[in-house]
């Protein structure tokens, strides 16, 4: 008797399982047909790093401080920079990323003092060799580099003028104060 009820229960559980699969049979597939539909990428999706445009410069604002190169656990960033005429900070001459080594930890973004590093939005890059993943991050900024340098110099000049003006104003104020002091003393 027990055996019969076991068999009955067993078959019932099997039928229930079949009920689940047949219900799904008539539902819509959840597949995203990738090359035809693009996956929606998260806003903070981590990817290869890029130099992002700063509005006031019209180009990136990398100052070749090498912070990202130093923090990178995988040694995948290499930067050389040099001082340009009329600029207070350095400017990178090369900014190479070996994306094949990158582990997308995001530490370089954390340390960037000018916040000019960001993530690329291209998530489906593929290649046939390691060399395909050696990115030159300055590539996209080559064309506008001269104008950017001009803008930077302009900004630098303005800043300098401002500083001069402030210093002058400070000095005048000081002198004035001194005069006043002197006046007070005299009085």
């Amino acid at each position: 008797m027990e055996m019969i009820s076991d068999v009955y229960r067993g078959f019932r559980s099997l039928l229930k399982g079949m009920g689940v699969t047949i219900r799904h049979f008539f539902r819509k597939p959840v597949t995203v047909e990738y090359p035809r539909e693009r996956a929606v990428v998260s806003k903070v999706q981590r990817n290869a790093i890029v130099l992002i445009e700063k509005d006031d410069i019209g180009s990136h604002n990398c100052i070749a401080c090498l912070q990202c190169e130093k923090i990178c656990p995988s040694n995948c960033i290499s930067i050389t920079g040099s001082r340009k005429d009329g600029l207070a900070f350095k400017r990178p001459d090369t900014f190479d990323l070996n994306f094949a080594l990158c582990s997308e930890c995001g530490l370089c973004l954390d340390v960037c003092p000018t916040d000019t590093l960001g993530y690329s939005k291209q998530y489906d890059k593929a290649g046939y060799s390691r060399e395909d993943f050696f990115y030159d991050l300055l590539d996209q900024w080559k064309a506008t580099e001269e104008t950017a340098l001009g803008t930077l110099r302009e900004i630098e000049r303005k800043k300098k003028e401002e500083r001069e003006a402030r210093r002058k104003a400070d000095a005048e104020a000081k002198a004035k104060a001194k005069e006043n002091d002197d006046g007070d003393e005299k009085a």
């Binding site: 699969t21 047949i22 049979f25 539902r27 597939p29 959840v30 597949t31 047909e33």
Partner: peptide, 13 residues
């Protein structure tokens, strides 16, 4: 096709 649909996939298309 049957397997795919039961698993909410597309199968060959």
């Amino acid at each position: 096709k049957v397997a795919a649909r039961m698993q909410r996939r597309m199968g060959p298309t």
